[in-house]
């Protein structure tokens, strides 16, 4: 797998990957709502005259529909926010917002690998000038790589920390076996961001750091 972002930079492919994943999940949500609606129909049809079996099921069924509708609406809002990232080539934005949204959209990739993502985002805004599409692709590539290397069932933590001159996104996870070539796999264009592959302080973990200067174009 070529994970050299500089060589493979292709916003269309990145957008395709994210939108395909999200629309798969939306299909699942619609599938659940369709089956729950069908169940209401089944219960109505199988009810004999004078019986009211729906009474004790209505609350449970309504909860399912509300839960799935809410899930779908949140997903559509996130996808819409993601789609609008390319409206401005480069501009000021809150990095917390960008990281939080991308991590949420990437959860399914981790879940399908039997792993999960945990964002740690500061309460205060982290304002930077970046190309959101390129930054997000870089972050997504790093997340996918760490997910691939992390131990089975691991939680991958994505921690955003701000400092005077730059913001740092540390992607870390338990990892019993290190990949000696990992630093070669995280080459990014110089004008995008600087990747520092940190040696783990403790054995059995992996940490990749994505650094964003506050005024990076």
């Amino acid at each position: 797998m070529n994970t050299d972002i500089g060589a493979r930079y292709n916003p269309q492919a990145f957008y395709s990957e994210i939108t395909a994943s999200v629309t798969h999940e939306l299909n699942n949500i619609l599938g659940i709502i369709e089956q729950v609606a069908g169940l209401v129909e089944d219960l109505t049809v199988t009810t004999s005259e004078g019986e009211t079996p729906m009474d004790n099921r209505m609350g449970e069924i309504a909860e399912k529909i509300i839960r799935q509708t809410d899930r779908g609406m949140k997903l559509v809002k996130r996808l819409n926010k993601f789609a609008h990232m390319g409206d401005v080539l480069s501009g000021e934005c809150d990095l917390c917002d960008v990281v939080e949204n991308l991590v949420a959209l990437a959860q399914r990739f981790a879940r399908l690998k039997g792993k999960s993502l945990r964002p740690e985002i500061p309460d205060d805004a982290v304002m930077v000038v970046i190309n959101q599409v390129r930054f997000s692709e870089a972050l997504f590539t790093c997340i996918k790589r760490v997910v691939a290397l992390a131990d089975a069932g691991a939680t991958v933590t994505i921690k955003l920390v701000d400092s005077e001159y730059h913001a740092s996104i540390l992607i870390s996870a338990p990892c019993a076996e290190h990949d000696p070539d990992i630093s070669k796999q995280f080459q990014l264009p110089e004008n995008l961001a600087q990747i520092v592959v940190r040696e783990s302080e403790s054995e059995g973990s992996i940490a990749v750091e994505l650094i964003v200067n506050h005024t990076m174009g």
Binding site: G31, I32, L39, T46, R67, Q68
Partner: peptide
Amino acid sequence: DEEELVSTLVERLGY
């Protein structure tokens, strides 16, 4: 892995 989908299908297929 969508439990609400398969649990609902189980009931509907029962009919």
